[in-house]
Design a protein around this nucleic acid. Structure first.
Lengths: 211, 211
DNA sequence: CCCGTTAAGCTAACAACGATAAGTTAACGG
DNA sequence: CCGTTAACTTATCGTTGTTAGCTTAACGGG
């Protein structure tokens, strides 16, 4: 009378004592894989993640409070990549203004190449958390700070007009996020060539922000 | 042995023959109300909508193929309001450039005041529809066309440099959408004063787009 | 006036989901 | 070898979107 097996795939061997956190990493990896494969946050179920990790669903909850926290953790890990990706993209660019623009281009590139991660990070409702703003846990803060620093460098070099670097960075963020999220959310729109669009935006801001 | 009633509220009287579409309107109204009340697309269930309309859940499917289509219909109706709201906001503004900026401000205002509608319209995955791009059914196309027209007027008046009005409009859309969607998705971010931010963006674009 | 047709809506149920309570198994220290 | 407990499992709950199939009431025709 035993029904169909609860675990369709191979069962994961039990971890040794004290090594329970190994499962956590496996769950994260499985969830990330499914997230990328399906490209749909809603299509990735806790059961599917558990199955892919060779484990039953309740085991997920030994490591994550709920599904939201799990998906968030997946993307939080990607945030480091995100920041690093942009930093890397501008490593060899001496001119601070060109670095700033290239950072923006890298932002859009990363977002469009990881649309589901980007969606969870920047396009979904924030967790109704008890702690509304633990300011340093705001994921992506590091990346934003680097943007502010880049803007500051441009101001110091006289490449753009002096002013509130935070304000300028925020509006630049809004621009690149606007492009990225619209490309993800409305791919059917008759988009102009992306390079041309980015080029135009860079031109406008180069002139608009000039000293 | 009849369990709890399937309909908690008052039951809706049956429509007369040929007037079945009356229910459709009631469902849309109920869904819209719940969407605004809860402020959460996921919290609005088909059962809750049906109950609010005084009807059982399957009756929903006499008028909408699935939940997505229903919520989409709710918002599509709001799109006309959206376009009208912006048009109204700039009705008495003679200067085309100032009208353009005020259209942008109205855009952000409408979005932040109707965050759940905005979310469904511009921040969710498009329906995996068979018809990928029936270009005129693209909701919001009217509003976008009006933006393109405004840009064209600015060019004709010499308020901004001549060029591709569609390209300029697209990038302006990206900017206002960026602000709006980030305000909705990440309210915990230490946002600068919105008027100041919009003012800065207007300044940058006024200079960046000038002839 | 009744009666067949059919629009309008219901009851019952399904499969899948996120989540929890409570039991079981296996690794380790003593 | 045994008790403890970390590491899982089984079984189940309530809810969700959705469908199949039955019932009821409004209407047109005789």
């Amino acid at each position: 009378m035993t029904g169909e097996p609860l675990l369709s795939g191979p069962r994961r061997p039990r971890a040794r004592r004290g090594e329970g956190d190994l499962l956590r990493a496996d769950i994260l990896a499985a969830a990330e894989r499914l997230l990328i494969e399906t490209g749909d946050q809603g299509a990735v179920s806790v059961r599917a993640i558990a199955d892919a990790a060779g484990v039953t669903p309740p085991s997920i909850y030994l490591h994550f409070a709920d599904k939201t926290e799990l998906l968030f953790a997946v993307c939080e890990a990607r945030f480091d990549d995100f920041d690093q990706y942009m930093t890397e993209a501008i490593r060899d660019i001496a001119d601070p203004l060109e670095a700033l623009w290239e950072r923006g281009r890298a932002y859009v590139r990363f977002g469009t190449e990881n649309p589901e991660h980007y969606r969870i990070l920047f396009m979904t409702r924030p967790l109704p958390d008890a702690t509304p703003a633990p300011p340093d846990r705001l994921p992506g803060l590091a990346a934003f700070s680097h943007l502010v620093e880049d803007v500051g460098r441009c101001m110091a070099a006289g490449a753009i007009a002096d002013g509130d670097a935070f304000l300028v960075a925020t509006s630049l963020w809004a621009v690149v996020h606007g492009i990225t999220s619209l490309l993800i959310a409305r791919p059917d729109f008759p988009w102009p060539d992306l390079d041309r669009l980015m080029g135009h935006i860079v031109d406008v801001h180069t002139r608009g922000l000039s000293a």
